[in-house]
Design a protein around this nucleic acid. Structure first.
Lengths: 300, 300
DNA sequence: ATGATGCGTTCGCAAAAAGAGAGCAAAAGC
DNA sequence: GCTTTTGCTCTCTTTTTGCGAACGCATCAT
C-alpha cells in the first residue's frame, strides 16, 4: 500500500510498456488484476485512457495527460521522500545490501562513494551473493534489500524498482561494430566471439538466442568470469557478449564500446531492487533505496 | 478507489480536522480504519506525520510537507478532470440534482447560470426536496447527486465534498453587530431576535444551543420560512439567526450583514454533496460536480 | 477526589476488494 | 493454416478494509 493508489501504479506501468501483460511481468501482478484496475480507473475518470489495438494498448490524449501528471506526482513524491529523510537528520544508520558479482564495479561503487561523502554516518555492508540465494537471505532478515537479476516470483518479495539491462556486443572502440547504434545477433557468426559460460547468468539467454535464431556463433573463447572476458576483449582477442552493466565501467572510461543486440526473441535481462514485503525498512536503507531509484531514473 | 490512495485521502481529512474522530465523521469511515491507514502511512514513509496530543493530532513538519504536496496533487487532479471533460467535448448531456430549499437563491443559481453560458448543451433538472427524502431518491436512481444538510450515514451514499456552514446573526449593515468579526451566542439575549421555527432545519441547532448555554433568547418573532425572516430583518424588525448560506445572496449584495456565532457547543451544520456509491456518474453530472467542488474550494 | 468527556489506539470478526489462473475471441505474423 | 499475442471475462482464493466495542490516557468540571 504505497502512497499512490493501485490504479495509478498499474496505469503507469501499462502506459510505459504499452501492454498489460508486459506490465504484469514487471509488477508481478496477474494481468487480469491490472486489467480490472485500468478499466475501473477509466470508469472513474469517465474517459478512455488507452486505445485498444490488437498489439496492445496505446495512450489516448487523455491518457497522456494523466501520465504527465503521474510523472510529476512521482517526482514530487521522490523529492518529498528525500526531504523527509534529510529532515529526520539522517546522520547515522546501517544497511545490509545484497548484490551480484556484476555490480562490484561500475555505478554502484560510484554511488556508494558519493553517499560516503554526503552522509558519512551511514554504514553500508555489501554482501556479494548469487542472485539465486538472495531471496532466502532477504526473507530471513539478513539484509535490507537486494539488487538481483531476473528475480523469480517470490510471494514474500516486492520489486521496488527495476531496470532493463540491454545485452550486446562488447569490443574495442576501434572495432567496426563500435560504430553501430544497434546490432542484430547474426553478427555473432561473422566475428570471433568470446562468450560467457555457466554458471554466469548470461549464459542462459545467449543459449536461448542461439537456439531460437539458428545463428552459429563463431566462438573463439568461453569464460565463467566477466572480468576475464573483458580482459580478453581488451587484448584484441575478439568480440564479447555481455550486458551493458558488465561493461559499464570500461565503456564510461572509453576503453570499450558497447552495442546493444536487437532481437525480440531475446529474453529480457532485468536488474531489480527487491525488498521483503512484510518488513519495515530502516531509515538508512530507505534512503539508499531512493538514491538508487533516482540514479536509475536519470542515468541509464 | 478514487484516483488517490486511501492513505492520502484519510491523511488529508485528518490533517484538516486535527482529529481522527472528526475525520471519521466527515468521511463516514470508522475511526479505527482511518487510524490504521495513518499509522501504516507513517511506517511506509518512515516518518512521524503527526504529533499525538491529548486533544488530537497536530501535523509535524514532515506532515506539513506531505500536506502541501497533497494539496498540489489534488488541485492537479481537479484541473486534469476538467481538462479531460473539456477534451471529451462536453457539449451535451443532462443531470438531475437534488437540493434543499435553502439553495434556491444564492450561489447555486449563479453557478448554474455561468454553466449555462459556458456549456449551453448541458441540461440540468433541479429538484427541490427535503434533505430527509434525498437519500432514497438517490439510491433509486432518480437523481445523479444531491446537496444535503447533515447527511445521516447511509451505506449506499458517499460524500464527495462537504462544507461547514457557519451559523450566525443576520442584521442590517448599519447594526452594531455588523461590525463584529464574530459573536458569542449570549448576544441573542440583548437584541430583539427573529428565529427559525420548525420544520426549518435551523430550528434544532438553535434549540440545542439555547439549552446548552442557558441563554434566554429575546425572541420577538418566529418564522418557518427563511425568506420571511430575512424580509423582517430588512424591515428593521430585529436580528435574525440563520446560516451563512441562507443569507449569502443578500450579504453579497450588501443588503444584509452576517456575523458567525462562535460556540463550541454548536452542532456543526454541514452541506454535503452526496452520490450513490455504486452508480456510475454521467459525464455531465461529473462535470457539474467538479464545478461545485471548485467553487467550494475557492469561495466560502 | 471523581466521574465525564474526548482522544488515539487495539482487537476480533465480517464484508469488500484485489490477486491468481484458466480460458475466450480477435487480430497479427509467419 | 498455424502459432503467438493481445485484452478481457470468469471463478476461486487471498488480502485488505471497515466496523464496533473496548482500553488506556489526559483533561475538565463537579
Amino acid at each position: 500500500m504505497p502512497v499512490f493508489s493501485r490504479f495509478l501504479r498499474y496505469f503507469m506501468a501499462v502506459a510505459q510498456h504499452g501492454s498489460i501483460r508486459k506490465a504484469s511481468d514487471e509488477l508481478h501482478i496477474a494481468a487480469s488484476a491490472i486489467d480490472r484496475q485500468v478499466l475501473q480507473g477509466e470508469k472513474i475518470l469517465g474517459t478512455q485512457l488507452f486505445e485498444r489495438l490488437p498489439s496492445g494498448l496505446r495512450l489516448t490524449t487523455a491518457g497522456e495527460l494523466l501520465l504527465t501528471s503521474c510523472r510529476r506526482w512521482s517526482r514530487d513524491l521522490n523529492a518529498l521522500q528525500t526531504q523527509l529523510d534529510n529532515l529526520k537528520g539522517l546522520r547515522q544508520g546501517s544497511t545490509d545490501i545484497l548484490i551480484p558479482d556484476a555490480l562490484t564495479k561500475g555505478f554502484l561503487p560510484t554511488l556508494l562513494g558519493r553517499l560516503r561523502q554526503t552522509h558519512p554516518g551511514i554504514m553500508v555492508s555489501v554482501h556479494v551473493r548469487k542472485s539465486h540465494d538472495m531471496g532466502e537471505l532477504l526473507v530471513k532478515g539478513h539484509a535490507d534489500f537486494a539488487l538481483m537479476f531476473n528475480p523469480g516470483h517470490m510471494r514474500e518479495l516486492t520489486v521496488r524498482t527495476h531496470k532493463e539491462i540491454p545485452l550486446g556486443f562488447v569490443c574495442l572502440p576501434s572495432h567496426e561494430i563500435a560504430g553501430l547504434k544497434e546490432a542484430r545477433f547474426s553478427l555473432a557468426a561473422e566475428y570471433p566471439m568470446i562468450i560467457p559460460a555457466p554458471p554466469l547468468a548470461l549464459w542462459r539467454p545467449i543459449g536461448v538466442l542461439e537456439a531460437e535464431t539458428g545463428v552459429k556463433v563463431a566462438t573463439v573463447a568461453k569464460a565463467d568470469n566477466i572480468q576475464m572476458i573483458k580482459s580478453m576483449v581488451l587484448e584484441g582477442a575478439g568480440v564479447g557478449i555481455l550486458s551493458y552493466l558488465d561493461a559499464y565501467d570500461e565503456v564510461q572510461k572509453g576503453q570499450l564500446a558497447f552495442t546493444p543486440i536487437t532481437n525480440r526473441k531475446l529474453p529480457p535481462l532485468t536488474l531489480a531492487l527487491c525488498v521483503d514485503r512484510s518488513r519495515q525498512l530502516s531509515t538508512a536503507a530507505r534512503f539508499i533505496i531512493t538514491e538508487i531509484e533516482n540514479f536509475f531514473a536519470e542515468q541509464f
